[in-house]
Structure formats: structure tokens, C-alpha cells
């Protein structure tokens, strides 16, 4: 599903990614952890080309990301993304936020899109907010709407960029719960997060990044119980 080989990314003289190689299978939920500045967000954003990779090879859902001929906009319909700051559209209602893309991409009629949007909103527990505006929602509700918005395009992959980092602590659980459900339903997910509980409980694999490289790529059990690398150990000892 996702295939990354020798991925590099530099900003001017600063090399943020120094050669990433990994392979993520369909239906896998992979959690990426690591100290800030380790390049984990950059790695995630390279996958749907929100950041332009400097060099390397990326294949996502059959799209060759590095090929200039690839229709990136088409690829992004299949690869949803959830942001730390939600990035909901404040001038649109919740319902319009969710239906905008399917309608404008002509994937559904307005009626179909709205029907599906209501289903999705109910599924993430904000069905009653369809006609509200984003600013009237709590952070947790906003993030769940953002997830519903991504799902409206029937993506094959979902990328999560620190989805709970901007939330008040009491709202983190409701968002993680939705993500857990998705993982259990077999959605292919790549999640950059600091929520170690989620990593331990839900992830099939945990990738520990530091200094622009993958330091360890193991099952949660191995990473948390028996990390091989010293850097992993020291990082985990600080966050757990």
C-alpha cells in the first residue's frame, strides 16, 4: 500500500530526513513516534506531497508520488489527512465541510453526499452538529468532524498528523476512540502521535524516528517491553 525508499528532505542546508525506507501493508495501522524535530511529521507530509521530497521513491496506493506526471490531486482523494489544527473551513457548516469535496469532485450528487455525511457524522458522534459552524464546536468535536470529512472521499489510506496534540486532555479520548474503530475496521493508517497508550493498544507496528532516520520499526510489544536501541530506551523512559 505504501512503499518508501531512501526518502530525503532538506530545507536549505538543514537535512530533516536522511534516508527513510519502509513498507506499510494494506490494513496496517502504523504509529510513528519520536522526539520533536525527529522528522516524523515531515515524513508523513511527504507521503501526500504536502512537502516536496528532495529525493527518494514513494509509492502510495499505486500512485508514484515522485513522478511529476502523477496527478497529485487525484492521489490525495485516496489518501486522507487529519491535521493537528483540524483545518476545518470556518465559513462552511459542518455538513458543508464534509460534503464540499465529494460534491465538487463530482463523486456524488448533493443528496447522496449529504446522506453519506450525516451517516459519517453520526458515526463519529457529532450527528447533531450538522448545521453548526466549526467555531461552535469543541476541539474534540472539530477533530472528529475532520476525520468524517476525510472519510467522505472513501480514502484507502488515512494520515494523522498529531491529531490530539491541540486538544484539551479530556477530549483526547473521544478522538482516539474514533481512530481505534477505524483501525479495527481495517483502514490503512499512518499516525504521528505522542499518545503511547494508543500506540501500544491499537498499532500493528510502531516506528521510532530520531534525527531524520528510522531507529526502530517493531511491534508495539517489542518497542515498549524490549526496545533494542539505546535512543529508543531513553526516549520511552522520558515519555512513559
Amino acid at each position: 500500500m505504501i512503499f518508501v525508499k531512501d526518502l530525503h528532505k532538506t530545507y536549505g542546508k538543514l537535512e530533516v530526513l536522511k534516508g527513510i525506507d519502509t513498507h506499510i501493508k494494506k490494513g496496517e495501522c502504523v504509529v510513528v513516534i519520536g522526539p520533536s524535530g525527529s522528522g516524523k511529521s515531515t515524513f508523513l507530509r511527504c507521503l501526500n506531497k504536502l512537502e516536496e521530497p528532495t529525493k527518494g521513491e514513494i509509492i502510495v496506493d499505486g500512485f508514484n508520488v515522485m513522478d511529476p506526471k502523477t496527478d497529485i490531486n487525484k492521489m490525495r482523494r485516496d489518501v486522507g489527512m487529519v491535521f493537528q489544527q483540524f483545518n476545518l473551513f470556518p465559513h462552511l457548516t459542518i455538513l458543508e465541510n464534509v460534503t464540499l469535496a465529494p460534491i465538487k469532485h463530482k463523486l456524488m450528487t448533493k443528496e447522496e453526499a449529504e446522506k453519506k455525511a450525516i451517516e459519517l457524522l453520526q458515526r463519529v458522534g457529532v450527528g447533531d452538529k450538522a448545521n453548526s459552524y466549526p467555531n461552535q464546536l469543541s476541539g474534540g468535536q472539530k477533530q472528529r468532524v475532520a476525520i468524517a470529512r476525510s472519510l467522505a472521499l472513501n480514502p484507502n489510506v488515512l494520515l494523522f498528523d498529531e491529531p490530539t496534540s491541540a486538544l484539551d486532555p479530556e477530549m483526547v479520548g473521544e478522538v482516539l476512540e474514533v481512530m481505534k474503530q477505524l483501525a479495527e475496521e481495517g483502514m490503512t493508517m499512518v499516525v504521528v502521535t505522542h499518545e503511547m497508550g494508543f500506540a501500544r493498544e491499537v498499532a500493528h507496528r510502531v516506528i521510532f524516528m530520531d534525527g531524520g532516520v528510522i531507529v526502530e520499526d517493531e511491534t508495539p510489544e517489542t518497542i515498549f517491553m524490549n526496545p533494542k536501541n539505546e535512543r529508543t530506551k531513553s526516549f520511552l523512559s522520558k515519555v512513559l
Binding site: L50, N73, M81, Q85, F86, N87, F89
Partner: peptide
């Protein structure tokens, strides 16, 4: 307009122009 709005639009598969039209300009 917040930079995240452009990213939000682009991540939904909208082109730069479409994002401008549907999301950035109305705000």
C-alpha cells in the same frame, strides 16, 4: 487566511485554484 486552510483544501484533492475559489477567497 490561516495557512492550514490551504493545506486542508489541498489534502482533499482540490487544486490550488479550486482551494482558492471554494475555501480561501470566501474567507
Amino acid at each position: 487566511v490561516d495557512k492550514g486552510q490551504m493545506e486542508g483544501g489541498r489534502s482533499l484533492g482540490f487544486s490550488y485554484g479550486e482551494t482558492m475559489r471554494y475555501i480561501i477567497l470566501p474567507q
